[in-house]
Design a binder for these strands. Structure first.
Length: 306
DNA sequence: TCGTGTCAAGATCTT
DNA sequence: AAGATCTTGACACGA
């Protein structure tokens, strides 16, 4: 069984669950008006989330990434007096129940400013706070540990090996509810598939293989040789991959608007023995997913789930 | 209504 | 040491 998903927003909808406000805007308001504004944004995001879930189910899409901004400025000081978890208990329950009923897998990708292997204590603190926020949202929705938080290793700081080990050390400082959800993805400039696989095996957490990043950064390793080891890191959980297509030869690292169906079908057919989820990362979001499906169908390619 | 500056945040490269 | 870049969409404001 192979399931496809997309990240955060529907291409043609203005009603995505990523509405936000700014600190500057909130600072102009009285404490009461500030709370009102924050509540209004989160309520809108919940409404839009339920809407996008319904759209996804209609289109048999059961993997979806929650925008990090879902709770506006959740980790910023300006919202520290706002008990959003308590105020929105009903909405969290409702979203969780809907996902359980329809078997939707929700995941998240904390922003690139959250870096667990940082050597700066303040950055470490804000990173732990950010990861904790993401985990808390999933906890409040009652989601199981297939709802993972995907992060990268982080910076190199002129010493790759030491930076990998600092990730492992800092991982031990995380609260339990973050540890049970955190997974690491290989990136396209610093930490390769081998680096991340070794790290994940050492810590005992799952690895997300990003196929495009591997194409950007590798030492000639054959991806398919490592698939069994990567899948093993997931234990009883459902493995998850990231897939995207290069924009062009001259700008290879950038994501194309769509997924190249030939490359995708070739990759999937090499993994036909396995069950897993694939997050498609490209500008055209849900449209790219539905287009890819049509192209595969046209080519007579239809593994279970797709 | 439309165009534009700004946004919570870090690492790394450039000057 | 300071500034630009990465990447990137959407908010908020002023024309």
């Amino acid at each position: 069984m192979i399931r496809l998903g997309y990240a955060c927003i529907r291409l043609d909808s203005p009603n995505n669950p990523n509405k936000k406000t700014t600190v500057a805007q909130l600072q102009k308001l009285s404490p009461e008006a500030r709370l009102k504004k924050l509540r209004q944004v989160l309520q809108t995001n919940f409404f839009n989330l339920m809407d996008i879930f319904a759209y996804n189910v209609e289109n048999r899409i059961f993997l979806y990434r929650l925008p990090s901004e879902f709770v506006p400025l959740a980790t910023h000081r300006i919202t520290e007096d706002w008990d959003w978890a308590k105020e929105f208990t009903w909405d969290f329950d409702k979203a969780g129940a809907y996902m359980k009923k329809h078997r939707i897998r929700l995941t998240s990708h904390p922003g690139h400013y959250s870096i667990l292997n940082t050597d700066n204590p303040n950055v470490l603190k804000s990173t732990i706070a950010d990861f904790s926020y993401h985990a808390r949202v999933f906890d409040l929705m009652g989601l199981d540990d297939n709802s993972v938080l995907v992060t990268h290793v982080g910076g190199v700081y002129n010493d790759k090996e030491a930076s990998l080990q600092r990730f492992a050390e800092h991982f031990e400082l995380l609260p339990e509810n973050v540890k049970r959800r955190l997974v690491v993805e290989n990136d396209d400039t610093s930490f390769s598939m081998i680096d991340v696989l070794t790290l994940c095996e050492q810590i005992g957490i799952p690895m997300v293989l990003d196929v495009h990043h591997h194409d950007c950064l590798n030492n000639g390793e054959d991806l398919y040789e490592y698939i069994p080891r990567i899948l093993d890191t997931w234990g009883t959980r459902t493995p998850k991959f990231h897939f995207s297509s290069p924009k062009c030869e001259s700008d290879f690292r950038s994501h194309a608007d769509h997924i190249d169906p030939e490359r995708f079908m070739e990759w999937v057919s090499r993994l036909s023995d396995y069950s897993f989820d694939v997050m498609l990362e490209c500008k055209n979001k849900d449209d790219a997913l539905l287009t890819l499906r049509r192209e595969m169908k046209k080519a007579g390619f239809s593994p279970e789930g797709l």
